[in-house]
Nucleic acid binder design. Structure first.
Length: 651
RNA sequence: GCGCCCGUAGCUCAGCUGGAUAGAGCAUCGGACUUCGAAUCCGGUGGUCGGGAGUUCGAAUCUCUCCGGGCGCGCCA
């Protein structure tokens, strides 16, 4: 809605510049004014014009205002400050248009590209419980997915499962050689309801590091185990399969707690067994994207030359022993995602309730959704893998797929570390230097870190205490549901409010906070918004709620909005959602949405405290307030939904 | 060595393609509950935007340089 007005303003001003001075118009930039009373939007374009026309900026602005015809949705243009043009929008029109847009549930967002978007996120090694770093990845990825879907673009969510990697092998080494367990014993452990299997593996994985050091310094057992897992058809591989897929189920259950789900789980074992790499290898060779090194340190390897800045050495794709590196497999997978591999997986249903599919090499179902063939591919992976992502994109480019390489996007974000205080709370030993740092990186190999489910459990307990205190009449089931919603909301907001390239120094005090700029603050504002309607009906059972919708078209709305800048400011913020959505997509920055939603909740809370609606005697005023409250509430709830944050019935 | 990121209030962070008086939250001090639910609201204290130079009518934002910190550059994944 506002985006349409922006376009009209820019077009109109450009046309006016051309007709007035017959020059090539500069880019018309629109900014927010410092105060809503000065209008909603401002353009500094006349400063640029002043330079070109050798006029005073204010003079140029006055002429431009005079030259510009009426613009649909804009009430007036005003000369301001040193030469700004301030624009005053038609207030009722903004509310009405934005309200309709929200009803339709489809936002302009970006471009007209109708192609499918593939977003790959989460990607946790299936060998231990998920931790907070994984939660950040999922929260960012899932929010980006929701935002993109709100523009009507088809999105496919993939969660890559590296089920044949060394990390899985290490846990299998733990089961087989540290604990000396058979396949049946491991299966019994998996079936034991008293064992949190992902937690068990968390500890076992940490033990494997110590085991290698003491018993197997050359890690021959790891190599051997990895080989057996990759080859398949043996007991080690069966154990690996059982362990990895059980852990995947744990991860999906954990992620479901914060409202994250997936469409497809592509597995590395299937990429291996279906020989995706062989196909990619042939093409890379045929198109001279990689070459065989006959001399030097990389003798006997297939390597790719990188022309990316900062990476001088060739990257080894196939080792001298003939095995493919991780990046090689990733290139094959990326080609498949882009629909360029000319090979496909088989597919099986992994979770029929949530419609999650998994790739397969042998037992595919005849009917399945069409996966892959993404027009754009976003890989949500932490920034430390930038180098590898560059190699993958380079591989696509070297095959001559320029457009596809451009549409292969590394959605990078910074890691979650621990504040030194938090690390100490967890019993992690710190050096004198570590204590002075702003954050301390954790090592999963040492079993350090904050497990996702532990954090969620703590949040739920804290929330439960508050909910029970405030709502003694609720049943235990209701308390449990609301506590969960608050815990998940608090966590998701906490992870989303930081921009992508901010390192989160995790701290329990901040993450467990329900006051101030937090998820529960936003939820509370939304709950109060909903309660206005509930209380109104309780107080006046015969109140016709349709009056609210009708009032959007009542001429009184215009005059009442014109008379109250404070209320208009709330309406304006609430109507900016389409603009925010477009910005989130363009900049790949979900934090922008989080900040916006918080600003909206703040404005709503102010409005809520300032105006009493139920006991308002003036009928016109009451319906006006109701219209505004309902509009703001809907916008806030939509924003929350885009962040995967639920609104509890009560708080 | 090369490359990327960061440095803004006591703490944690926003600040969009350069634009009007640099903003939030927490903390701190003070005020508002017989309430459409105070997980809230109102007010106060608190900043030479790491230093310097440059570009510009205009720089927290762009360029260069220096200082301080993080990360990456594997025949690991």
């Amino acid at each position: 809605m506002l985006l349409d007005i922006h376009v009209r303003i820019k077009d109109a001003l450009r046309a006016a510049i051309v007709s007035q001075w017959n020059i090539d118009p500069p880019d018309v930039v629109l900014n927010q004014t410092p105060k809503i009373a000065m209008g909603e939007l401002a353009t500094p374009v006349c400063f640029e014009l002043a330079k070109r026309l050798k006029k005073a900026p204010r003079a140029a602005a006055a002429e431009l205002i005079a030259a510009a015809g009426p613009i649909e949705g804009v009430r007036k243009l005003e000369l301001a400050g040193a030469g700004y043009i301030n624009l005053f929008l038609d207030r009722a029109n903004v509310l009405r248009g934005s309200s309709m847009e929200m009803d339709a549930g489809k936002f302009r967002g970006f471009g007209d590209n109708p192609g499918k978007v593939i977003v790959e996120h989460t990607n946790i090694n299936p060998n231990k419980a998920a931790h907070i770093g994984h939660l950040r990845n999922a929260a960012i990825g899932d929010t980006f997915v929701r935002v993109m879907k709100s523009t009507g673009r088809p999105v496919e969510i993939q969660n890559y499962i590296d089920n044949t990697g060394v990390q899985v092998a290490d846990v299998i080494v733990g089961f087989k050689y540290i604990e000396k367990k058979s396949l049946d014993e491991v299966k019994a452990l998996i079936a034991d309801p008293d064992v949190r299997f992902d937690y068990y593996c968390w500890d076992l994985y940490a033990k494997s590091a110590a085991f290698y050091e003491a018993e197997d310094p050359k890690k021959t057992l790891r190599g051997q185990t990895l080989k057996e897992i990759e080859e398949g058809g043996n007991e080690t591989a069966q154990m690996g399969e059982a362990v990895a897929m059980t852990i995947v189920k744990c991860h999906l259950a954990t992620m479901a707690r914060i409202n994250v789900r997936y469409d497809l789980l592509p597995r590395e074992s299937d990429i291996l067994h279906l020989k995706f790499w062989d196909r990619a290898f042939e093409e890379l060779k045929a198109k001279n994207a990689i070459f065989f090194e006959n001399e030097g340190k990389n003798k006997g390897c297939w390597v790719m030359t990188l022309d990316a800045e900062g990476y001088d050495d060739d990257k080894i794709i196939v080792r001298s022993n003939g095995t493919v590196t991780y990046v090689g497999k990733d290139i094959a997978y990326q080609l498949w995602k882009l629909g360029l591999l000319h090979k496909d997986f088989l597919y099986d249903l992994f979770d029929s309730d949530r419609h999650v599919w998994v790739t397969s090499s042998a037992n595919g179902r005849p009917i399945h959704p069409a996966f892959g063939h993404g027009a754009s591919v976003y890989n949500v992976i932490d920034v430390r893998q930038s180098y590898l992502q560059t190699v993958v994109r380079q591989g696509v480019l070297a095959l001559g797929y320029e457009e596809e390489a451009k549409n292969s996007v590394h959605f990078a974000y910074e890691m979650v570390a621990l504040s030194p205080a938090c690390a100490q709370e967890l019993g992690i030993e710190l050096s004198e230097e570590d204590r002075k740092r702003s954050h301390v990186e954790v090592s999963g190999r040492k079993g350090q870190g904050v497990k996702a489910d532990d954090l969620l459990d703590t949040l739920e307990n804290d929330a439960r205490r508050e909910v029970e205190k405030r709502n003694p009449e609720l049943t235990p089931a209701e308390v449990a549901e609301i506590s969960h919603q608050i815990a998940a909301g608090a966590l998701r907001y906490f992870l989303l409010k930081f921009t992508r390239n901010a390192i989160i120094a995790f701290d329990f005090k901040e993450a467990l906070n329900f006051v101030g700029e937090t998820g529960p603050y936003l939820q509370y504002a939304a709950v109060r918004g909903c309660n206005i309607i509930n209380k109104l009906i309780a107080a006046q059972p015969d109140y016709d709620l349709n009056r609210i919708k009708r009032f959007e078209n009542d001429p009184k709305l215009q005059t009442m909005l014109a008379e109250s800048d404070d209320i208009w400011e709330l309406v304006y913020i609430a109507s900016r959602l389409d603009e925010i959505i477009a910005q989130v997509i363009q900049t790949m920055e979900p934090a922008t949405l989080a900040k916006h939603a918080f600003t909206l909740a703040q404005a709503f809370s102010v409005f809520y405290g300032k105006y009493r609606i139920i006991d308002e005697n003036d009928e016109d005023k009451q319906v006006f307030y109701l219209t505004v409250a309902d509009f703001a509430r809907r916008s806030l709830m939509l924003s929350l939904e885009l962040m995967g944050i639920e609104v509890p019935r009560r708080m």
